[in-house]
Simulated assay, not measured.
Amino acid sequence: MLSLKQKFFLILGTISLLFFVYLLWLVSAFMGGGADYYVDLPNGYLFRGGDGDGIITYDTTRKSIYGKVTEIAFNDDFIIAKQVPDSMSHESEIENHLKRRNPQKNSDLKALADSILSADPYYKRIFSAQENYWILNHHGKGLLYGPFTKIEFERKKQELQVPASLVLKNAWDL
């Protein structure tokens, strides 16, 4: 039989352990960043992945591919990608772009970003498909071609002479 003192320390130890496990859960659940990772791509481009999202970005001077880039391949001339459109990711990037262009006017940026996504033909095309394909010729001005269907993508690859050895792979296997 346990004494009252032993029971007290047993209960205290159990509570301490549960509290420690709870703290670990809080840190892992809310601190974020643990799943983020970055892959340097040619000519200053970057693949940023995390929380099931993935984007190919450069900086504000060149085109980027937002919204769940799921597959990617690259060489010294081209970056090719498969994207699953994600309206939240696009909305966030549009809001950030608007903030950078006019930092004094931060009100209603979400509403403005929503209206751009719903009215602009470029974004209508992106969101009309379950998946899109892109080709980025990253030399010079960083020309971005897309969004394409799979068939349009294959045609454009031939037209731009993208090597057949450049095959899309899971972005998280880079």
Rank of each mutant, 00 (worst) to 15 (best):
F9P: 02
D36Q: 06
K156G: 12
Q104Y: 12
P163T: 06
L109K: 12
N106P: 00
R48V: 12
I80W: 07
E159R: 10
A35W: 07
F78A: 03
T60K: 14
H139K: 14
I151M: 10
N106H: 08
D36R: 06
I15T: 11
Y133V: 11
A29T: 15
E131D: 10
S89I: 05
L98C: 02
N132R: 04
L17N: 05
L17K: 02
L144Q: 06
N43W: 03
A119W: 11
Y45P: 02
H139A: 02
E152V: 01
W25S: 14
I79S: 05
L4E: 13
F8A: 09
N170K: 11
L117T: 02
E159W: 04
Y122F: 15
P42L: 07
Y38I: 10
H139P: 00
H90L: 06
W172T: 12
S89G: 10
G34N: 14
S16E: 10
E93L: 01
F8W: 10
L17V: 07
E71S: 12
A171W: 13
V27W: 15
I55C: 02
L12Q: 07
S115M: 14
S128A: 11
T149Q: 09
Y58C: 03
Y145A: 00
N96T: 08
E152F: 03
L23Q: 15
P147D: 05
